[in-house]
């Protein structure tokens, strides 16, 4: 409706302040705060565990069998993965040698072609991350053609790999160092815990729409 557009913009221009001195911005409150590596991890873990995120420390070990063992222990029936990503390939390669365990399901076609099956699946989805944010306890995800958005959204359990060396102090620091604004992807996510709600009497309940559980695997 081009008429509405010009009417709105014309009215705004007519009302716009004549002299504009926009206030300066001091980013100190959101900038990095010079945390050490261990402190970053500790902060991230504390914040995420406070909202029921689970952790599996696979540093210095092979994370594929670690995930396999965890899933077997949790009796999870299936693992949906992104077959063309590096972690996806690695799992596909190693999984058969680990013995009985969850079935692997590659996310290798458009959602529309298997929506019902994906929604019916009762296992976990595995994604990589682009790092974490210590101050808020968040994972940075950039879904892509190879790693779809629904992989971290529809399965009841989300397993995310986090490289400990890629944890930033704050969101502001992460977006500057990773230069988000230069080329924003279709979707960029911060995930800070499993799905939750407090809409009934302010009482926290987990797994309302998205994943009921979030497992962060430290690598």
């Amino acid at each position: 409706m081009p008429d509405a557009r010009s009417a709105i913009l014309t009215r705004l221009r007519a009302g716009a302040p004549a002299t504009v001195t926009p206030p300066d911005e001091d980013f100190a409150p959101v900038a990095g705060i010079g945390m050490g590596g261990e402190e970053r991890l500790a902060r991230l873990r504390r914040a995420m565990e406070a909202v029921h995120t689970e952790f599996l420390d696979a540093r210095g070990a092979d994370w594929v069998p670690a995930i396999h063992a965890w899933m077997v222990a949790q009796s999870l029936p299936s693992l949906i993965l992104a077959p063309r990503t590096e972690p996806g390939r690695r799992i596909a390669e190693r999984w058969p040698g680990l013995g009985a365990g969850p079935r692997l399901i590659p996310y290798d076609r458009p959602l529309a072609e298997w929506k019902a099956a994906l929604f019916a699946e009762n296992g976990a989805g595995l994604t990589a991350t682009l790092g974490g944010i210590a101050a808020t306890g968040s994972l940075i995800l950039i879904p892509s053609a190879d790693e779809p958005r629904t992989l971290s959204l529809v399965p009841p359990v989300h397993i995310a790999l986090l490289e400990v060396a890629r944890i930033y102090d704050t969101m502001w620091q992460a977006m500057r160092e990773q230069e988000w604004s230069r080329a924003m992807p279709t979707n960029l996510l911060l995930i800070s815990g499993p799905s939750k709600t407090a809409d009934i009497e302010q009482t926290l309940a987990y797994g309302v729409h998205g994943p009921k559980r979030l497992l962060v695997v430290l690598v």
């Binding site: 101050a135 808020t136 306890g137 996510l189 911060l190 995930i191 800070s192 499993p194």
Partner: peptide, 13 residues
């Protein structure tokens, strides 16, 4: 400190 999800969308598929 933050919501469970911060969803930044820049365009359709």
């Amino acid at each position: 400190p933050i919501t469970g999800y911060v969803n930044m969308i820049t365009g359709p598929r």
